[in-house]
Simulated assay, not measured.
Amino acid sequence: MTRQSSLDKRPTILLVDDLPDNLYVFTELLRREGYEVIAASNGKKALELLYSHPEQIDLVLSDVMMPEMTGFELCKLIKGDDRICEIPIILITAQLMNEEHAVEGLEGGADDYISRPISPNLLTKKINAVIERKSMADRWREKSRRTQEALEVKEWHTRMLIHDLRNPLTSAMGFLSILAMDDSLSARHRELISKIQNAIQKEAELLEDMLTLIAAREGRLYLELENFNLMDQITEVMFLEEGAAAKKGVIVEKESLVDDLTIYGDRRLIGRVLTNLLDNAIKHAPRGTSIRINAFRNRAHERPYVPHNVEEGWIVCGISNLGSPIPEDSRKKIFEPFVQIPKDSRMSCLLGVGLGLSFCQEIVRLHGGKIGVISPIPGLDQGTIFYFSMAPA
């Protein structure tokens, strides 16, 4: 059976054994099966070959019982070195080796082991399986690297775009403020100016959130931590969103099941999380329905629903509406950056702008908290709850 690697070349095996006869027999066997073989008579020489040609070797096949350096010791040295730790290892054990020694090899980082007497068919199957696993892991790492690079490029362009957009928005706000000082303006004109100012302010906040998200992902965001009552922040955000709720024709209600909801965090950023989640709930709530904001401690006798994977006693804030439920496949990726949930027969419009929920997730994560979504609402066939949790102060 000839095995081709992902680079369309014959896999190269580093064979390690202190007995010349064993080296000869295994070398001939492996070459007949289509492998290239490099032989080393002890662990020290094996390490020298690995350090000099790490990209050439696809797998290490090593005997366990060798003088000076055992196969177990060689395995630990390979797996403990970042330069060569990804090269898989199969250990060859003695026929009478007990289970404890086999476990020792696997715990030391060995990918597999085979006992004497060696079955050529079993050996090649194990080698093929281990090399294939490594090939799959390599492909996944390369895909992840390219995805990360693409995301970094996108974030760089986003950062440049944000900086270019902030200046004209600031200028527009300044001109509107000057215009509003004109005593000859009618009440209708003043109302229109106020609406334009509110719209510009919303856009400015969105741009600021995007910059905050990028800074958080780059490790440049510093939290201004203080103790504050989460309900006070909820009340403030509800006041700021009154206009949006009235325009949509929905009612926003709040409920706290306990008096003390003090948390230790960045008041402004937690306020932005609440604003994003409430604004999202308003956008997707059917006209004439209610949006509920529940704040509670995660205790069995105090919670209106069971949040997923939240520690007992933590403070939870959930914002729910009665819109169409979010499809399961969309829930899995809804917090990823630049992801939008497309229209379908149940969704009235796009969910988010691609960064709002990712921003919320990053801010909650920086506070050591958790964020999640439940859809549909338990006991109903509709509605969605977005919630986040934080440790009490």
Rank of each mutant, 00 (worst) to 15 (best):
S348H: 14
V37I: 04
G313H: 11
H301W: 07
S62D: 10
R139I: 00
A215S: 13
T2P: 02
G313A: 14
A204M: 03
L257F: 10
E253L: 15
N298Q: 15
D329W: 02
H157Y: 13
C349A: 09
P120M: 03
H101W: 05
K125M: 09
A393D: 05
L223C: 03
V310T: 14
L357R: 04
K248V: 01
I270M: 11
L206M: 14
R141Y: 04
S62R: 06
F239P: 00
K134L: 05
L223Y: 03
D266S: 13
H163T: 13
P337G: 14
E86R: 08
K45Y: 07
H157A: 04
S320R: 11
P11F: 09
T289N: 10
C349V: 05
A393N: 06
I38R: 13
N42Q: 06
R83I: 08
E68F: 03
M160T: 06
L179H: 03
E142F: 02
L165Y: 08
M160C: 06
P117H: 06
R346V: 10
R190W: 07
I385L: 02
G249H: 07
P376C: 09
A180L: 05
G383Y: 01
R159F: 02
P20F: 07
R145A: 14
Q382Y: 07
M160A: 09
L61G: 00
S194Y: 06
L357K: 01
N280K: 01
N294L: 09
L380M: 08
P378I: 10
L29N: 08
N280A: 12
W140P: 00
N276H: 08
W156D: 13
L213K: 07
G352I: 10
E226Q: 15
V306S: 03
Y35E: 10
M69N: 03
D164W: 03
D18H: 12
E241N: 14
E226S: 14
M66A: 03
V37C: 03
T235Y: 04
P337D: 12
T235V: 03
E205I: 05
I326D: 02
M136V: 12
A285G: 00
P327E: 12
R31N: 14
R217L: 01
K154F: 10
Y222C: 12
H301I: 07
H308S: 13
R297P: 00
I234Y: 09
F228A: 07
